[in-house]
Design a protein around this nucleic acid. Structure first.
Length: 167
DNA sequence: GCCAACGTTGGC
DNA sequence: GCCAACGTTGGC
């Protein structure tokens, strides 16, 4: 009955919103909003409570994966799309017919060291990651269980809950 | 700062 | 429906 846990990766520019900003939030939890790409939005909508999230710093020096979070609430309307003063304002979005969504995530771990893109590229097992594809821009992307486990190993963490254990 | 990659827009 | 123009992302 239980759905298998899924894994995701979200990007954020640390100058805009870093993992340390997430750490400073009440309950270390935030509503992940502002996504304005349909594929990324569809990934947000596919997220379920307890899914694992890799937190990536883009446009950073160095860019890389800096920690993990967990999905604590499923997709709901991104009200910033209704705010005329928001850069993500979209007049096609209404409360009644929402077009854009966000999810609630809670910080789990901040890695001791950034897993930089060059470091990740050294890993044969991670070659297929969307993140490492040339020109990859998708800001919310799926991660395979295998990649999740490898990345947590590289970060020196126990991959945690036995994600692949019998349901 | 450069620029490749890619999504979106809008004329036709 | 096509596709050129344009804007954005994000590594380097």
């Amino acid at each position: 009955m239980a759905r298998r846990r899924r894994y995701w990766l979200v990007k954020s520019e640390p100058a805009v919103y870093s993992i340390h900003d997430l750490a400073a939030e009440k309950g270390r939890t935030t509503f992940w909003d502002g996504v304005r790409n349909y594929q990324a939005r569809n990934n947000l909508k596919a997220m379920r409570r307890d899914d694992g999230v890799l937190f990536h710093h883009s446009n950073a020096r160095p860019p890389g994966i800096v920690g993990t979070a967990v999905v604590v609430g499923e997709a709901r309307e991104d009200a910033t799309a209704r705010d005329p003063h928001s850069p993500g304002h979209d007049p096609r979005h209404t409360r009644e017919a929402p077009r854009w969504f966000g999810v609630d995530i809670r910080l789990e771990h901040i890695f001791d060291e950034v897993l930089t893109l060059p470091r990740l590229r050294e890993e044969p097992g991670l070659r297929d990651m969307e993140l490492l594809r040339k020109g990859s821009r998708l800001s919310v992307q799926p991660v395979t269980p295998r990649a999740w486990r490898r990345i947590l190993e590289l970060a020196g963490l126990d991959p945690g809950r036995p994600a692949e254990a019998a349901d």
